[in-house]
Design a protein around this nucleic acid. Structure first.
Length: 428
RNA sequence: GGAAUGAUGGUCGAGUGGUUUAAGACACCAUCCUGCUAAGAUGGAGUACUUGAAAAAGUACCGAAGGUUCAAAUCCUUCUCAUUCCGCCA
């Protein structure tokens, strides 16, 4: 969400930005919102005048009544009643205009960072850097569910009967590996100075509506029947929700937080063949990082955040690359976003395992996340990034650590969480 | 889940329809004054929007949203949260 004052003073920048994002249908909204805003301000001035008049007359009525001058009081009362109609009309008009202004401001995209590559859709995203060699071994890498099955580690049939498609049972060493990765990720981020959080896994509709659009909400969120509660789609929802309508003291910044949560997503829409198994599912777990910082620090934090994920995957011997979202693929609230993708030796390509976003002050303005500063108050900058999200991450882990004999290497940092084992041997 | 009580500024706390411009205290900031582990005096200080070059002014905000009224912190309705008691429970 942009600052209406910025739009008023820089309509050309706002329009140019819309063009860069290939959303030309939104161009007329800029002039519309500027005109509406002007109208809103003029009606507010009139309404304030009327209210000021009413306040002073009411006070006089009070005085007159107190001194027993009933008739004079009644006369004034009629005056106030007379202008009440105009006030009501103006208030209604003002509310209507304000609603439309807010509506437009919600869909005007944030000004993208100058470094963002221009492109229409995800096909024009740009690879930034590769970390580690994307090796394709000579032996065949089976589909990830088959690798898991060789350890007796997955039961999708039973999950289908019990909960439907998009759910899974993980068992034995594979389940333990899943937990080990999350615990390692937690400690990895704590060691880098982040504060560990376990947030609420359900949130109210008011918070949901704050952190996402209605369309996203419909496509993602599970609602609890008979309650005003939704299952979170990511811990970002409850972590950012924590800051809604708050002031944070400048000296308490930056807030560098790492949160664990299960995530629940409807995943409405069609899925390709490579999304079978535990790639795209209704329930997964995620270690996330959230940063709330001063505006001048957000670029620096953005680079630190995605670097954390890259480092994490590299300690587990998984080759990754960073892929920058082009202008057309960038969500409207974001100024810049980089996906971390892991190498799949089976598919011989990279696939998304994390997403790092800088929202500048757009999310903060929308949710009134403010900083109390020495020289006045201002909106914070917010960022979020995935540390790791198994079981999808297990796909990359198993494919990259699979040996010719079907066993799976446990990289050194993970062994302490796996009972000291340095490899897993298939049961069949 | 049932019942009772409550929610007021940075903190405590007064306020049951009209000199409330939210009293008072504590904490805070500025200035002044005073020779002693600091006290005192005066003043200032919230958030948002609007008008204005500025000084300043106006409006709204007493948990939230509605309502009644010329006028609401105060009355009415709904909701949220907290505390206590009972019940249930890992």
């Amino acid at each position: 969400m942009l600052d209406i004052k910025f739009v008023r003073e820089n309509p050309d920048i706002v329009k140019e930005n819309i063009r860069k994002k290939f959303q030309d249908d939104k161009l007329p909204l800029v002039d519309e919102v500027i005109a509406l805003d002007e109208k809103r301000r003029s009606t507010q001035v009139r309404a304030d005048e009327l209210r000021a008049n009413r306040n002073s007359l009411s006070k006089e009525i009070g005085n007159l009544m107190a001194h027993g001058k009933k008739e004079e009081g009644m006369a004034l009362r009629e005056q106030v009643t007379a202008q009440a109609k105009e006030l009501e009309k103006i208030e209604k008009e003002n509310a209507k205009v304000t609603e439309r202004v807010t509506q437009i401001m919600m869909i005007l995209p944030n000004i993208i960072d100058p470094s963002v590559p221009i492109g229409k859709d995800d096909s024009e995203n740009v690879e930034i850097e590769k970390f580690g060699d994307p090796v394709v071994p000579e032996y065949e890498i089976p589909y990830h569910t088959d690798i898991m099955a060789s350890f007796n580690g997955i039961d999708l049939d039973a999950a289908g009967r019990v909960a439907g498609s998009g759910f899974y049972y993980l068992m034995g060493d594979i389940a333990r590996l899943h937990s080990a990765i999350l615990t390692y990720a937690r400690d990895f981020m704590i060691d880098r100075g982040f504060t560990y959080y376990i947030p609420p896994f359900m949130i109210r509709s008011a918070v949901v509506e704050g952190v996402m659009s209605f369309a996203e909400m419909d496509a993602m969120m599970y609602k609890i029947e008979g309650e005003d509660l939704y299952l979170i789609g990511t811990s970002e929802h409850s972590m950012i929700g924590k800051f809604i309508d708050t002031f944070t003291n400048e000296e308490d910044l930056p807030q560098t937080l790492t949160s664990y949560s299960p995530c629940f997503r409807k995943e409405k829409g069609a899925h390709g063949i490579e999304e079978r198994g535990v790639y795209r599912i209704h329930q997964f777990e995620k270690q996330e990082m959230i940063v709330v910082c001063k505006p001048e620090d957000s670029k620096m934090w953005f680079d630190k955040l995605w670097q954390n994920t890259v480092d994490f995957f590299r300690t587990l011997d998984i080759p990754v690359r960073t892929l920058e979202c082009c202008s057309g693929d960038l969500a409207d609230l974001k100024v810049k976003s980089i996906d971390v993708e892991a190498w799949s030796p089976r598919q011989k390509k990279y696939f998304e395992v994390g997403s790092c976003s800088n929202l500048s002050d757009a999310q903060a303005r929308r949710l009134r996340i403010r900083i109390k500063g020495e020289n006045g108050n201002y909106f914070a900058h917010t960022l979020n990034n995935t540390v790791v999200a198994p079981p999808r991450m297990l796909i990359a882990f198993l494919e990259n650590n699979l040996q010719a004999d079907g066993s799976v290497n446990i990289p050194k940092p993970l062994r302490v969480y796996m009972g000291g084992k340095d490899n897993l041997v298939p049961t069949k």
